[in-house]
Amino acid sequence: MDFLTLPNRTSGKRAHGLTSIIDLGTPIGELFNYLSDYSHLIDLAKIGVGSAYVTPNIKKKVELYQEFDVKPYCGGTLFEKCYHQNKLAEYKAYLHQLGIEWIEISNGTLDIPLMERIEIISNLIDEFHVIAEVGSKDANHIMPASKWKEEIKRLLAAGCEYVITEGRDSGTSGIYENDGHVKSELIAELCNKIDSSKIIFEAPTAKQQMYFIKEIGPNVNLGNVKLHDVLVLEAQRCGLRSETFYLEDLECELL
């Protein structure tokens, strides 16, 4: 029964309003149970850090996600490891063998020049859906807003379907201060200059998720979401939590 007035929420095969989970070793049996109930709330699944390379039965896990219409991809750290060891050709073959259709290009650990990343992307877009990540995992690395904007715009122009803003699975670097607070001025600047529907904001904590929902709206793209938080996140998006209680009223004010 639908009897409440809630914020308008994208559904089905969403182009925005995405929830991207991070899988840091969820056993297949447990994953099946979660997906059986909540797969309609999940769009993408990052097999976090480089864990895909050492995950038992990784092909079965990939196939399980795909069975539930969730798009799996490997964390950018695995790409960077392959880049560092000059194994990108082998990495492409590995992804094709697993049936993975999405690839993340990042420079969170290595300092890969922007133009080199763009060249790599140009060689991948005919074979994969490409997501690029901007920002460093080093909490002490400060990047001005102008560079964030330049990189995001140029990566999208190069053919990336989305750009992820680095936040780590801890929410303590990139778009966050060391203590987890959002760099709100940076986010405001990015959203003022770039279509936020093409950005996936890494937001691993409920507090960070609620910030983006309140600032950008219920259909903001959020990444690094823990699997066990998926249902509560959807409740937050629908104004069913105290901190997002008045979302539908804000939407009406904007119309």
Score class of each variant (00 low, 15 high):
135 G>C: 03
1 M>I: 14
153 K>G: 03
158 A>M: 11
192 N>C: 00
186 L>S: 07
183 K>S: 06
161 E>S: 12
30 E>D: 13
44 L>M: 00
138 D>C: 13
16 H>M: 13
172 T>A: 05
254 L>C: 14
158 A>S: 13
46 K>V: 04
165 T>I: 15
90 E>I: 00
84 H>R: 12
50 G>M: 07
214 K>G: 07
56 P>R: 10
42 I>Q: 03
32 F>P: 04
97 Q>R: 12
194 I>D: 03
41 L>E: 09
109 T>C: 07
72 P>W: 12
123 N>I: 04
149 K>N: 10
136 S>E: 09
252 C>W: 14
126 D>Y: 04
188 A>V: 02
85 Q>F: 08
225 V>T: 02
95 L>Y: 01
166 E>K: 04
24 L>C: 09
102 W>A: 00
181 H>G: 08
61 K>S: 05
250 L>W: 04
215 E>A: 14
39 S>K: 02
57 N>K: 08
126 D>S: 12
250 L>Y: 07
135 G>K: 01
253 E>S: 15
159 G>Q: 11
219 N>G: 14
218 P>A: 07
124 L>K: 04
56 P>G: 12
245 F>K: 07
234 E>D: 14
168 R>H: 02
93 A>I: 10
127 E>K: 08
203 A>Q: 03
204 P>G: 07
101 E>L: 03
53 Y>I: 13
25 G>P: 01
9 R>E: 03
7 P>T: 13
42 I>D: 06
8 N>P: 13
108 G>R: 01
108 G>A: 02
230 V>Y: 00
209 Q>W: 04
211 Y>F: 15
227 L>N: 08
8 N>D: 14
249 D>A: 15
131 I>V: 13
71 K>Y: 10
63 E>R: 12
142 I>D: 11
45 A>Q: 07
188 A>K: 01
62 V>Q: 01
225 V>E: 00
106 S>E: 06
220 V>F: 06
121 I>W: 00
228 H>S: 09
239 G>H: 05
23 D>T: 10
212 F>D: 09
120 I>R: 05
136 S>V: 11
118 I>H: 00
40 H>M: 04
202 E>W: 09
5 T>M: 15
124 L>S: 04
183 K>N: 09
234 E>G: 07
166 E>I: 01
215 E>R: 03
189 E>N: 13
176 Y>H: 10
207 K>E: 11
244 T>S: 08
137 K>P: 02
99 G>S: 06
105 I>T: 00
46 K>N: 05
140 N>Q: 07
45 A>E: 05
41 L>W: 08
122 S>K: 15
